[in-house]
Design a protein around this nucleic acid. Structure first.
Length: 359
DNA sequence: TTATATT
């Protein structure tokens, strides 16, 4: 049995349309707002990220005019993408520069300008199978690019065999008619040198799921909810892998979840409405909110982060706070990140206590 | 042998 653990993908950045204009909202002659330089689409969001977390993350960059995490109309499940419209085009640019590529849990988010919404860009996603195993993503893009502008392409790979192609992929075109032309031109055709013809068809659309698939999804969601926590040993193993994969920093002075749990009972502020507040000490003067999202995001639902800055210099005063929804995830984050070496600093991470609250 | 990008 083949397990799909990863894919390889090339991402085309959407540029804001039109020529560069002065900052601030641009009002066109017909009275509508031109949001091409302020409106962003965010893809590959973790499944469990909420609207609040989404807003908090992107609000750390600058003032948001509006934002929306897109959900399935029927199940209410996140579709893994959302939109953020900033007030200032400079903040949109800053969000792309600082948050694109951010690792949150198992995902690497993509932040890019949203194309103007229109019916012509919907259902432009193709499923391709029967690709030669030797065909790279670049090869596949080259083959399809004659039919239009490619927004994303992806070849599914099998990680247990170190990223060998499964011969299956996706191509998203800018326009649906480009996708239609690609089907006409390439379905059933042999790519040059290939032994077998490829199949090219429209990809399944998540909003067009069958009743059966919806039931399966609901069942799986419910089943996950009732699954107890993994054995500690397993959790640590997984977390270390996650961290080693995510960051180029070495673990320092690991402590166990059990020692944290005993510590946790005594001195806690406790869950205050939003969740569990975590105190992070020994951040560098240059630290910003994104580093806290990067550190804590992989452990679970983070609702808010805050870097405490000096009022006059605007430099970090060496500490910050992170709010996490679930106790278990917060405890795991603390257990793994306390003593963590970030650059040349060793972090001190703990639940926020009433004593620290006064200080 | 289909993962998720247009509110």
């Amino acid at each position: 049995m083949v397990t799909i653990i990863s894919t390889m993908e090339t991402q085309v950045s959407n540029g804001p349309s039109g020529t560069s204009l002065p900052n601030g909202p641009v009002i066109s002659t017909n009275g509508s707002t031109d949001d091409s330089k302020t409106n962003l689409i965010v893809n590959y969001l973790p499944q469990n990220m909420t609207q609040e977390e989404f807003k908090s993350l992107f609000g750390s960059i600058g003032e948001i005019e509006s934002c929306k995490l897109v959900r399935d109309k029927i199940t209410g499940q996140s579709l893994g993408y959302g939109f953020v419209n900033y007030v200032d085009p400079n903040d949109a640019d800053k969000a792309i520069n600082t948050l694109n590529g951010l690792k949150l849990q198992t995902k690497t988010i993509k932040v890019s300008y949203a194309r103007p919404s229109s019916a012509s860009i919907r259902d432009a996603n193709l499923y391709v199978s029967g690709l030669p195993k030797t065909m790279s993503q670049k090869d596949m893009e080259q083959l399809f690019s004659q039919y239009g502008r490619i927004i994303t392409s992806r070849i599914l790979v099998d990680q247990v065999t170190a990223g060998i192609s499964r011969g299956v992929g996706f191509i998203r075109f800018d326009k649906r008619n480009e996708a239609e032309e690609a089907i006409k031109g390439l379905n059933g055709q042999k790519p040059l040198g290939a032994a077998e013809p490829i199949t090219v068809k429209f990809a399944n659309n998540p909003s067009q799921k069958t009743g059966q698939a919806l039931l399966t999804q609901l069942y799986q969601t419910a089943a996950r909810r009732y699954t107890g926590p993994l054995h500690h040993q397993t959790q640590r193993f997984r977390l270390d892998n996650l961290l080693n994969a995510s960051y180029g920093v070495k673990r320092f002075s690991p402590i166990t979840i059990d020692s944290m749990t005993s510590l946790a009972g005594v001195n806690l502020t406790g869950p205050t409405g939003a969740g569990w507040c975590i105190f992070v000490y020994n951040l560098s003067p240059e630290a910003d909110e994104s580093v806290l999202w990067q550190l804590f995001g992989p452990f679970g639902a983070v609702t808010n982060v805050k870097v405490i800055r000096d009022f006059t210099t605007n430099k970090c005063k060496g500490f910050g706070f992170v709010t996490m929804t679930n106790y278990d995830e917060a405890a795991m984050a603390i257990a793994s990140l306390n003593g963590y070496r970030l650059g040349d600093r060793v972090l001190q991470v703990s639940f926020k206590t009433s004593k620290q609250h006064k200080a």
